[in-house]
Design a protein around this nucleic acid. Structure first.
Lengths: 339, 339
DNA sequence: GATCTCAGTGTAAGCGCTTGCATTTGATTC
DNA sequence: GAATCAAATGCAAGCGCTTACACTGAGATC
């Protein structure tokens, strides 16, 4: 029946060990239910044949995969990479395997990836941010897949989440900036469409303005994709504009790094001529010259906690609860009172 | 038979559409073999039920998964993230899905992940570097999984690879350094054990010394894990040593960034007091102050080509051929003739 | 010594899908 | 209208595994 030298199956192992397939299966899954002597025999056969259980068959029969799926916008963004690494490590210690896909920020691809992971039998799912089609949420609900939203915190949503309040965090930074005496503020924001994190951060700055009686509608904002070079370009545009701001607040550290670079190229001193702030506190922030004032976010901690929470949801069939993490402002050399 | 409101199966779709399961299956896999009218009926039913094919069952029946697995040491390393993102994008355009796992540089975990991906029916595998247990290679061979090695180039290995010659690239940089007049050279290397890339880079520097009649055995080398902070610490140790080098060559940009940071903290000017070089040319390199002289590696290109090659191997059942990519030296402000 | 237990093992029924082969259908030809 | 044939569809056999249930036999109980 089996082709010569083909991949060994449970049957092969059973035959070699001289037991039934059920016993082999039990050796692999519930070893304590098999007597020592038999187990040794079986394990030897497994070893000898180089047997690996076929995952598909296993899933079909057992309905459990010990697999968690995660879909992130891109692996190229350090904050996701970092959080996900921690997520994976924690999952691993619980006996779960992580499968990662990236969507390149495209909702259609994300939907496809979600379906793919579900079809692969993921026991649970980690998604980034709330912003997505209602149909997808309905789909997840009907498939009854425990799903956790990370990198976002928002009350009153259907799915549990873990993250921090982007808006409030940025508002806090904005208020600091204003407290230092800045009045001419410009913003380089990440792309807001379909990205609740970027949107929240932008709104946070506007909130800060409002609190201090300034008009958020006159705030100059340039929106641009997550790339150092884009930050540089946007910064150039802003500084070549009619009214030079005293501070440029960026939606993330990568854009801020680009801004800083362009400032240097333009012969502007930071923070004497213009202050620059970021968001995320990636490693980069500390080694820039000058070091970047930014909002620190506990990415690793978030990844770890997300794993704990999701495993809990999967195993206890719980709905899961949302966790809010605290961010904090890191004051560094790139921000000072206006000169 | 089916529990109320459970996940819909092919049978459910067939029943609702009033056709056989075979027809539904064909609608999904070979639509041209089904007449328009039937297809519409079936697709409507699929839509209505929110049906997603069960992956495990599909694999079992069809023996093909259109899935490629990749195992990288860590997602936190920008070079892997970047290459992998390109890898995934290219795979996606060929209709394949990428599953990523990370091993945290631990061979045991890597072996486990390889088995896990194979068990999940990966049609092909992407691994980083050659350095691993022979048993694993034997296992892959017996499972007949097309495997491509990336981020490494070496002739005469069993498996095809795609990458560049770490050793020769670093040697080229080393010769440049020496040509500039440097004689007191120190090295901060990544951890060499089980990492052929780091090992090759270190050897490359020694080769350069040899070419210029210098003794590679007297080369001061500090080996330390991939972390900015470690680069800083190592740099401190080197500069506090008895003989200050005129140049510190680092095994990668991250270590170099740390070195640069510590240099600044120590009040040393780069490159006047000491030159620093890196390897990889990650984005970081360009925005450091001063910008880092480093070896540019086409990570995205490598990821893309790796995908093309691997798909070819999977579909044409070919053994695959190795591809050598060219690296190039990026001269920037952090390297100059000794002062 | 007969009866009862129960741990250890085997038997066999699926899990949801694909696909070779058999059958039906409907268009085409004579 | 009968005969022919290709296209469309249905039937049913697995794919490799888990697990409910049945069975076996050795020790415990009376």
């Amino acid at each position: 029946m089996s082709r010569i030298r083909s991949v060994p199956t449970l049957d092969d192992v059973a035959r070699v060990a001289g037991v039934s397939t059920a016993t082999v299966s039990r050796c692999l899954n519930t070893p304590h239910r098999v007597v020592e002597k038999t187990r040794t025999k079986v394990m030897t056969a497994v070893e000898e044949l180089g047997y690996t259980p076929n995952f598909g068959a296993r899933v079909m029969a057992a309905k459990r995969t010990y697999t968690i799926g995660a879909i992130i916008p891109t692996m190229e963004n350090a904050i996701f990479a970092r959080g996900l690494q921690a997520f994976q490590e924690e999952l691993h210690s619980h006996g779960y395997t992580l499968l990662v896909s990236s969507s390149a920020y495209r909702p259609d691809i994300e939907a496809e990836q979600i379906r793919s992971l579900v079809a692969r039998g993921a026991d649970g799912l980690l998604l980034i941010g709330y912003c997505r089609d209602q149909g997808l949420y309905a789909y997840l609900k009907r498939q009854a897949i425990p799903t956790l939203i990370a990198w976002a915190f928002s009350e009153g949503e259907d799915l549990p989440c873990i993250g921090f309040d982007n808006r409030a965090s940025m508002q806090a930074l904005g208020e600091q900036v204003i407290a230092l005496g800045h009045r001419r503020i410009a913003v380089i924001s990440g792309v807001v469409a379909g990205n609740d994190r970027a949107e929240g951060r932008l709104q946070g700055i506007k909130d800060a303005l409002r609190v201090h009686g300034m008009d958020p509608d006159t705030l100059p904002v340039i929106e641009t994709p997550y790339e150092i070079e884009n930050g540089a370009t946007a910064f150039g545009q802003i500084m070549d504009g009619p009214v030079r701001p005293t501070v440029v607040m960026c939606g993330n550290d990568v854009l801020a790094a680009g801004a800083l670079k362009r400032a240097r190229e333009m012969g502007l001193n930071v923070p004497e001529d213009v202050s620059i702030t970021g968001f995320d506190d990636i490693e980069l922030a500390r080694i820039l010259t000058p070091p970047l004032t930014t909002v620190h976010v506990p990415h690793r901690e978030m990844g770890r906690r997300a794993a704990v929470e999701l495993v809990e949801m999967v195993e206890r069939k719980g709905t899961g609860s949302s966790v809010q993490l605290q961010s904090s402002i890191r004051m560094r050399g790139s921000l000072a009172a206006p000169g």
